[in-house]
Write a protein that binds this DNA or RNA. Structure first.
Length: 395
DNA sequence: AAGCCTACCAACCGCCGGCCT
DNA sequence: CAGGCCGGCGGTTGGTAGGCT
C-alpha cells in the first residue's frame, strides 16, 4: 500500500533542487539519465522543450489517433515523440486516461454514485483510483475533484453543530490534511485538528446512523469525542494519551504500540493476508488494470491512521465504532457479519450495506439527508436526532 | 462595465512501488 | 541483490467561468 505522502518542506525542497540541477538541455535526456545513476533522480522528460498547459484539439486528435492505431506501446515516455507531440509522457498518459479514452463519463454524478463515493471514502479514504474502479466511466481525477468541490460541502452542510463544543483533543497538531490550503482555510470546521486526526467524517456520519443500545457513551459527549478514547482507561486508570492508537498525533513512524491489544488487533484484523483487488478504470489505457492494496498484520505500520478509523466502521455496521471506544466485548469473534472482510466489499456489497442501514428502523438514512443541502437546519436537526438516538441509547 | 471573489476542474508535481536489467 | 526506469497515484496548483458588488 502506498504510504501517505508526508514529506516535510525540507524534503520537498531538496527534491526540487535535485531536479533543478539536472534539468536537461534539449536532446540531452539520455545523457542525463546516465548522470542520474550517479547523482539522483532524473526528470521524466525534457521539461524545457515540452508544452504544458491545456491540450489543444489538434494535440488531442494526434494522441487519440496514435493510440487508436498503435496503442500506448507500454511506454508513455516514448509515446509523445512517436506521436509527434511536444508533451511529457506523463501528460499524455493523464490526458488519455482522464479525457480521451473511450467510455469516459463526464457530467453530473448520480445519487447512486454519490452514495458509493461516500461509502468507499468512509471505508478506504482517499484512494481515488480504487473508488474510480467502482464507478465505471469515472476517473480518479474526476472523483477527487468532485469530492473536493461538492461532496465535501454536502457533508459540511450537516456538520456545523459539531463545532459548538470544542473537543479536548482539538489542540492536537494537524498532521496531514487532504485539503489544499485554500480549502483548509475556507472551511473552519475542517481546519480543526480533531476532525482529521481523530475521525473520518463519514465514520461520524455512518456511526451516527446506527443505534447500539449502548449506554456507555454519555449524552454530554461531543460527537468528536467519540473518536478518542475515554479520558480514563478502565483497565489501567491512566488518562489516555495520544499513544493510544498507533500513528496517532503525527507519529509518522506509525509504530507506537496500542495500549490495548484487543483494540490493536481489531484495527489490524482487516488484513489477515486479505487483499483488495479491484479493476482500476484509470490505471491503464484500457481501463482494465488491477489495483491492489493489502493490509496484513505485518504491514500494519503503514496503515494510515485515517484508514484505521474508517476500517473500524466497516467492520460491523452496528457495533464496531461504539465497542472500539468503550471496551465492550472487544473480541473479534463474530465481528464480521457473514464473515465479510471489509476490504473485499465490492460495489454490490456496498449497496447492500447502504440498504441495511436504510432499512433499519433504528437508523437514519444518511444518503437522503446528505442531498439536503438546501436546508441546513433540517439536515442538522436530523443529524442531531440520529446522534441523540445513538448517544442516548434509546431503543 | 469593471473589479473582485469563488467554484470548478484540467493539469501538473513529486513520491512510491514494481519491474527490469 | 542493487539500482534505474517508468507507471501509477494522491495532493496541489492555476486558469477560467460565472456570480456578486
Amino acid at each position: 500500500m502506498r504510504q501517505n505522502c508526508l514529506f516535510t518542506a525540507d524534503q520537498t525542497e531538496r527534491e526540487r533542487k535535485k531536479r533543478e540541477i539536472f534539468l536537461p538541455e534539449k536532446g540531452q535526456l539520455s545523457e542525463i539519465r546516465t548522470t542520474k545513476r550517479e547523482m539522483g533522480r532524473a526528470p521524466c522528460c525534457d521539461k524545457t522543450s515540452v508544452k504544458k498547459g491545456p491540450w489543444s484539439p489538434e494535440e488531442d486528435a494526434k494522441l487519440k489517433e496514435f493510440i487508436n492505431k498503435h496503442g500506448t506501446g507500454g511506454n508513455w515516455i516514448a509515446l509523445p515523440h512517436k506521436a509527434g507531440l511536444k508533451r511529457c509522457g506523463k501528460s499524455c498518459r493523464l490526458r488519455w486516461l482522464n479525457y480521451l479514452r473511450p467510455n469516459i463519463k463526464h457530467g453530473e454524478f448520480s445519487e447512486d454514485e454519490d452514495r458509493i463515493i461516500y461509502s468507499l471514502y468512509a471505508s478506504i479514504g482517499s484512494r481515488w483510483s480504487i473508488i474510480a474502479g467502482q464507478l465505471p466511466g469515472r476517473t480518479d481525477n474526476d472523483i477527487k475533484n468532485y469530492w473536493n468541490t461538492k461532496l465535501r460541502k454536502k457533508l459540511l452542510a450537516m456538520l456545523p453543530s459539531f463545532q459548538k463544543k470544542p473537543s479536548f483533543h482539538q489542540s492536537i497538531p494537524l498532521q496531514s490534511s487532504p485539503l489544499s490550503d485554500h480549502h483548509k482555510y475556507s472551511d473552519n470546521f475542517l481546519n480543526t485538528s480533531s476532525f482529521y486526526n481523530n475521525s473520518n467524517f463519514m465514520n461520524v456520519s455512518n456511526s451516527l446512523l446506527t443505534t447500539t443500545g449502548s449506554s456507555i457513551v454519555h449524552d454530554h459527549m461531543n460527537v468528536t469525542d467519540l473518536f478518542v478514547p475515554p479520558p480514563s482507561n478502565p483497565l489501567t486508570g491512566m488518562i489516555s494519551n495520544n499513544n493510544y492508537y498507533p500513528g496517532f498525533q503525527g507519529d509518522q513512524s506509525m509504530n507506537k504500540e496500542c495500549y490495548y491489544p484487543e483494540v490493536k488487533e481489531r484495527m489490524l484484523m482487516f488484513g489477515g493476508g486479505g487483499e483488495l483487488s479491484t479493476t482500476c478504470s484509470s490505471s491503464d489505457g484500457g481501463g482494465s488494470c488491477m489495483s491492489q492494496i493489502s493490509y496484513n498484520k505485518y504491514d500494519h505500520h503503514r496503515i494510515k491512521q485515517e484508514d484505521q478509523f474508517s476500517l473500524q466502521w466497516f467492520g460491523d455496521q452496528r457495533h464496531a465504532f461504539m465497542t472500539d471506544h468503550n471496551y465492550v466485548d472487544q473480541k473479534p469473534k463474530g465481528y464480521f457479519k457473514n464473515h465479510v472482510n471489509p476490504l473485499h466489499i465490492n460495489l454490490e456489497e456496498v449497496k447492500q450495506l447502504t440498504v441495511i442501514n436504510n432499512n433499519s428502523s433504528s437508523s437514519v438514512n444518511i444518503s437522503s439527508y446528505l442531498m439536503n443541502d438546501d436546508d441546513e437546519n433540517k439536515t442538522t436537526h436530523i443529524l442531531t436526532d440520529g446522534c441523540y438516538m445513538m448517544i442516548d441509547g434509546s431503543n
